[in-house]
Simulated scan of single mutants.
Amino acid sequence: MTSYSYASSLGDTSYRAVETRARLDALARLLDSAIRVPGTNIRFGADALLNLVPGVGLLTSKGMSAYLIWEARRLGVPLPTLLRMVGHVGVDFVISAIPVVGWVGDAFYRSNLRNMDLLRRHLDKAHPMASPIQR
């Protein structure tokens, strides 16, 4: 079964939710865990790398985090959950603002993956993924 026929069997709204989930999941992984340090299980992402560029890097990485929250709002995530998501990014912002320590903190405090987990829980309730049609 092609991805189109599977997606069309989900219905238009659910298909958009699946598409959005995949896109935002990829963004969260890119920001928080895209690169693995060889020989270890330590992972970091573009968020940590962007914070090496003073000012602009911090604003860019937090701007992408804000986009994830904006999309969550668009998908109907309730206000208390959105506030938790904002809190995660706020903590990340405070950690990132500290020179040198912030870079290390970014490697271990993964606000975008935490926010994706909250979004995924909401989408699982609001747009449950249908199982593919068996042939």
Rank of each mutant, 00 (worst) to 15 (best):
M1W: 05
T2Q: 08
T2R: 10
Y4R: 10
Y4K: 11
Y4W: 08
S5Y: 03
Y6N: 07
A7H: 05
A7T: 04
S8T: 13
S9L: 02
D12A: 14
T13Y: 07
T13M: 13
T13C: 08
S14G: 06
Y15K: 13
A17C: 10
A17W: 01
E19N: 04
E19F: 10
T20M: 13
R23C: 10
L24G: 02
D25Y: 10
D25W: 06
A26R: 03
A26V: 00
L27H: 07
L27Q: 07
R29K: 10
D32Y: 01
S33E: 12
R36F: 03
R36A: 12
V37C: 06
P38M: 13
P38E: 14
N41S: 13
N41A: 11
G45K: 02
A46Q: 14
D47I: 02
D47V: 00
A48L: 15
L50D: 13
N51F: 03
L52R: 01
P54K: 00
G55A: 03
G55D: 08
G55L: 07
G57M: 06
G57E: 04
L58N: 01
L58D: 01
L59K: 03
T60L: 09
S61I: 00
K62T: 14
K62V: 09
K62N: 13
G63S: 14
M64Q: 11
M64C: 11
Y67K: 06
L68N: 01
I69C: 00
I69S: 00
E71D: 04
R73L: 12
R74D: 08
L75W: 04
V77L: 02
P78V: 07
P80Q: 10
L82N: 01
L83I: 10
R84N: 07
M85T: 03
V86E: 05
D92C: 02
F93K: 00
F93M: 07
V94F: 10
I98R: 02
V104N: 04
V104M: 12
F108N: 07
Y109A: 03
R110Q: 15
S111L: 03
S111C: 05
S111M: 03
L113Q: 14
L113K: 04
L113N: 12
N115C: 14
M116T: 02
M116H: 02
D117F: 06
D117S: 15
H122T: 07
L123G: 04
D124I: 08
K125Y: 04
K125L: 11
A126P: 00
H127I: 12
H127Y: 09
P128H: 03
S131R: 13
P132E: 06
R135S: 09
